[in-house]
Design a protein around this nucleic acid. Structure first.
Lengths: 181, 181
DNA sequence: ATCAAGTGAGACAGTCATGTCTCAAGAGAT
DNA sequence: ATCTCTTGAGACATGACTGTCTCACTTGAT
């Protein structure tokens, strides 16, 4: 039941990441089901996108909680966040990059709140002296998601090995974000 | 004449960056012209995208040449590249991120060649000891464009000041890419 | 004032994706 | 073996976008 719906959502994200304009027809085929069944599971394209957004938000919130981004050393918190969120890089990259496709205010608002939570982590790190203050915290947050999305695409397209993805993200990002003397 | 076409292309990119599925109707309205004139300038959506891709390739190639990425210190070459390409961040970000929208083989092939030229810069920097070798050169290239795209969006959405964009890109990226002891 | 060129508004048919429906076939339980 | 539930295939009307065309209007030059 839920497993089924979720696998359909994930295959839809996989396709839509490459072809944002893919028709319901193609989405159904990518999931290995018929167009009729797809409409039974998600009544309409809007509903499908809504559930994709909801799933992405759930995963993202879980990752933030799991990583305990509000506690402890900010640098270590970023590493924990990368650990927790990289398994869902495709999904998060989709909602982050393609967020303009979501007309849904509830989704975009909730996303903005999660985004703000990440920005707060960087602001906290700047105040504690861990992160460079020359770069705005909002930019650090944006850059983190940009690179996360990039990792997601690179892995999906086979340009980056999955086992290298965590290092690729954290080393590059932290190298640029951590304050040095 | 050419100026007119170009301004239409740029406003189209501005709109399509936010709404990749925007109709010709909306593209025309965003450019301040009628749908009829838009079709006179660019006979069909495909032709419009083709010219956007061509323009982006021209700008990108000019930037690579201007920056002389094949010569001199790799770190300085990256700085020069950022200088040269940031004015066209929106355009390059569009073709880079939304490249899946281009069915045009000529465009994607030419883009891959330019992308490879950037990757060669990073490979050269790794061989000279300037850049970290733990990160694949292809990932450095990808990350550079991801961050460039992020800068483009952030500036467009007003989240980042234009005068800060160069520093935001080069400091974060080079901080993570440059080798340290 | 006249003329030429370009533009905008609207109409038009064609195409495609969508959402809904029906019906036949298959899977699984009893 | 039978029954029930779910699925897939296809048909259907609807709506949206596209590409093309016509016509009236404006602009600028002569």
């Amino acid at each position: 039941m839920a497993t089924d719906r979720e696998s359909v959502l994930l295959s839809a994200v996989g396709l839509l990441s490459r072809q944002p304009t893919a028709a319901m027809d193609e989405i159904a085929r990518a999931a290995g089901i018929s167009r009729a069944t797809l409409h039974r599971l998600f009544p309409g394209r809007e509903a499908l996108f809504h559930e994709i957004g909801t799933l992405a938000l759930e995963r993202m919130e879980s990752a933030l909680n799991e990583a305990a981004v509000d506690e402890g050393d900010p640098v270590e918190a970023v590493r924990r966040l990368a650990d927790a969120v990289i398994p869902h890089a495709q999904l998060v990259a989709f909602i982050s990059g393609e967020s303009r496709l979501f007309d849904d205010d509830a989704i975009t608002d909730a996303w903005d709140r999660l985004d703000a939570r990440v920005a707060a982590l960087f602001l906290r790190g700047q105040q504690s002296g861990a992160f460079r203050i020359e770069l705005p915290a909002s930019w650090l947050s944006e850059a983190f998601f940009d690179l996360l999305a990039g990792v997601g695409w690179a892995v999906q397209d086979g340009r980056l090995a999955h086992r290298d993805s965590n290092r690729a993200l954290t080393e590059l990002f932290l190298g640029g974000a951590v304050r040095r003397d």
